[in-house]
Simulated scan of single mutants.
Amino acid sequence: MQRVPLISQLEKLSVEATPTDKLKEAIKVKKKLFKQWSRTKSQSDYDKYKEARKECKKVVKTAKNASWQEYGEYLAEKCEKSPREFYKAVKAVRQRDKPFDPTSLINDEAGNPLTDQEDINNRWEEYFDGLLNFGDSQRSQEPFNPGFPDEEEPSILEDEVRAVVKECAKNKAVGTDDITTEAIQACGDVGIKWLNRVFNAVWEERAAPDDWQKAIVIPIWKKKGSKRDCEKYRGISLLSQADKLFAKITERRIRPLVELQLRETQFGFRKNRGCTDVILRYDSYVKSVSSSTRSCT
């Protein structure tokens, strides 16, 4: 078969040419030969185009291998120097379509596109406000009545605050107060005492600060439907880190009391229990029943 211009042109490229440069040249020559064959419909031009297409596939494969090799070296470097950046890079590969990145255009409730940024922000606020916030008619109007009003509730201890601060996760997004867990931990005992005073004030007054009742909602696409429809997004709420610490202390105080009232068949949201344990027990039970049935027959 006659040698097609693609191979000779690729050989003319300098030795320092990157796989991307060779790929661009291969695609350019292949398109040129395809247009030529489309005009003439001759067998010789088709053979040239066929050979160019074959060589182009080889160049594409080589470019892909070189790209993954370069990316692998990049990941190896990040793994040694910055494990956090390494896991972020791996996660980016798994989410190439970026479902967390909404489109620049959003439709209103009637389906009409919105282009002004202020209108888009108002549409997002309207959608999540109706989705997450309850109206006055849905809120309970009954006042809070403690089960044992005559008993004094113990104040929150500094040791409780110190324990949850020590165990709190790092590198987490902040809420409306812009206070990170790293900043709280960096304050040391001063931060512990400050949090302890705030937590005890909330505990005694039974009223949370306004910042704790607000959240920054991040829309994430559900990977189905139009990206312009707000209904195709789910929201992730970024809460105050101090609010999370207070909730953790409250959960640790309530859990021992609740555990005494739960049945042994309750597995959800319990320590050292989960759906896997239920599945394993069910599987072993089914197998035992099946084996006993076979033995009886």
Rank of each mutant, 00 (worst) to 15 (best):
C79A: 15
A76V: 08
L75T: 04
L75W: 04
K78G: 03
Y71W: 04
S67V: 05
A76H: 10
P83V: 00
Q69C: 11
C79K: 13
N65T: 14
A66H: 02
S67G: 05
S82T: 12
E77L: 08
C79Y: 08
Q69I: 10
P83F: 01
A66D: 09
A66W: 01
K81H: 04
Y74G: 06
K81G: 02
E55N: 11
A63M: 00
V59M: 02
E55Q: 10
N65S: 11
K64N: 12
C56M: 12
K54P: 00
Q69E: 14
A63N: 00
N65L: 11
K61C: 12
K78V: 03
E70M: 04
S82Q: 10
L75N: 00
E70A: 10
E70Q: 06
P83D: 03
A76C: 03
Q69R: 14
C79P: 04
T62P: 07
K61T: 14
N65V: 14
W68P: 06
V60Y: 08
C79I: 11
A76Y: 07
V59R: 00
E77I: 07
W68C: 13
E73W: 06
A63R: 02
E77G: 08
V59N: 01
Q69W: 11
P83C: 01
S82Y: 05
T62S: 15
K81C: 02
K54V: 08
E70P: 00
N65K: 15
E80Y: 05
K64L: 12
Y74P: 05
A66L: 03
Q69A: 14
C56Q: 07
E80T: 09
K54S: 14
S82V: 06
S67K: 08
R53N: 05
E55L: 12
K61N: 13
N65E: 13
E73L: 07
K81Y: 01
C79N: 10
Y74F: 09
Q69K: 13
K64Y: 13
E80C: 03
K61L: 13
E80D: 09
K58N: 11
K57D: 06
A66M: 04
K81V: 07
Q69P: 02
Y71G: 01
N65I: 12
V59T: 02
E80H: 06
K81N: 06
E73A: 08
S82P: 03
E77K: 11
V59E: 00
E73Q: 09
A76N: 11
T62C: 13
E73Y: 05
A63G: 00
W68V: 15
S67M: 10
P83I: 02
K57G: 08
E55G: 02
G72C: 02
S67E: 09
S82A: 06
V59W: 00
A76W: 06
Y71D: 04
C79E: 13
G72P: 01
R53W: 02
K54W: 15
A76P: 05
P83A: 00
K81T: 10
T62H: 13
K78Q: 07
C79L: 14
E70N: 03
Y71V: 04
W68K: 15
E55T: 09
E73N: 09
K58R: 14
Y74K: 13
K78S: 04
E70H: 02
